[in-house]
């Protein structure tokens, strides 16, 4: 899925504070199937941009097109459905549902996207958990998993619906080098196989070598790295 940003501006306006524009992107696009590393220091607006791309945060102005479709021209429930079917999002804090097992967490987007029946959903979730090395942790709750294991569940969840666009926010932030490599291998390989566009936001310089396309987010703008 290709991604196009046009005249994108996003401003945070908190009461009593001066309004702060964090994104000022005139024109930017990512080709379908591209794997892009989005770099930037903390607070540069990486997460904001990913949230906008995920359909969670309407930009103050501008257009976001995903697969030719203007994301924010769609009604909210359609954007919700896109997140369940087409856009996979790996949150920085993983954000797994604490009351559900690893397997049930992975099943979630499949339920909301209504793509598969119950048994097919479970089979797909099992397969994904097995592929991220959590064969013996299907029934574990997030609290019973390590940080690395939680991240792997989040990756499996993001890939569950075979999305055309995968967004990952600092996926390696809490991992050691070995685990970091394993997760990135899984993520990149899965997206490559599925032809999905991958955008990874990170300030980890070690990741740069893994991506052909690196962009820096500085002063609200995107600059090719």
């Amino acid at each position: 899925m290709d991604v196009v940003l046009q005249q994108l501006r996003h401003t945070y306006a908190a009461s009593g504070l001066e309004a702060r524009t964090v994104l000022m992107i005139d024109d930017w696009q990512a080709a379908s199937g591209a794997q892009i590393l989005l770099r930037g220091v903390s607070g540069s607006g990486k997460t904001t941009l990913l949230n906008i791309l995920a359909g969670l945060l309407p930009p103050t102005t501008g257009v976001v097109r995903c697969g030719g479709q203007s994301l924010y021209a769609l009604p909210e429930n359609e954007r919700d459905r896109l997140r369940a079917t087409t856009i996979g999002y790996i949150f920085q804090m993983h954000h797994l549902a604490p009351t559900l097992s690893a397997l049930e967490n992975v099943e979630m987007p499949l339920v909301f996207g209504r793509k598969l029946n119950a048994s097919a959903r479970t089979a797909r979730a099992r397969e994904l958990l097995d592929s991220v090395g959590l064969r013996d942790f299907h029934r574990h709750r997030p609290m019973q998993l390590s940080t690395g294991q939680r991240l792997r569940v989040a990756v499996a969840r993001a890939l569950a619906a075979q999305p055309a666009l995968v967004l990952a926010d600092e996926p390696t932030a809490a991992l050691d080098a070995e685990s970091s490599h394993a997760v990135m291998d899984l993520l990149q390989e899965s997206c490559r196989r599925a032809g999905a566009t991958l955008i990874v936001a990170s300030h980890d310089p070690a990741l740069a070598t893994r991506f052909d396309h690196v962009v820096d987010l500085r002063n609200g703008g995107l600059h090719e790295g």
Binding site: E76, R81, A84, A97, M108, P109
Partner: peptide, 15 residues
């Protein structure tokens, strides 16, 4: 927080 997670992975407001 849980509901926000659900919304984050595709649940609608109605859900």
């Amino acid at each position: 927080h849980l509901l926000a997670i659900l919304r984050g992975v595709g649940a609608s407001r109605r859900t």
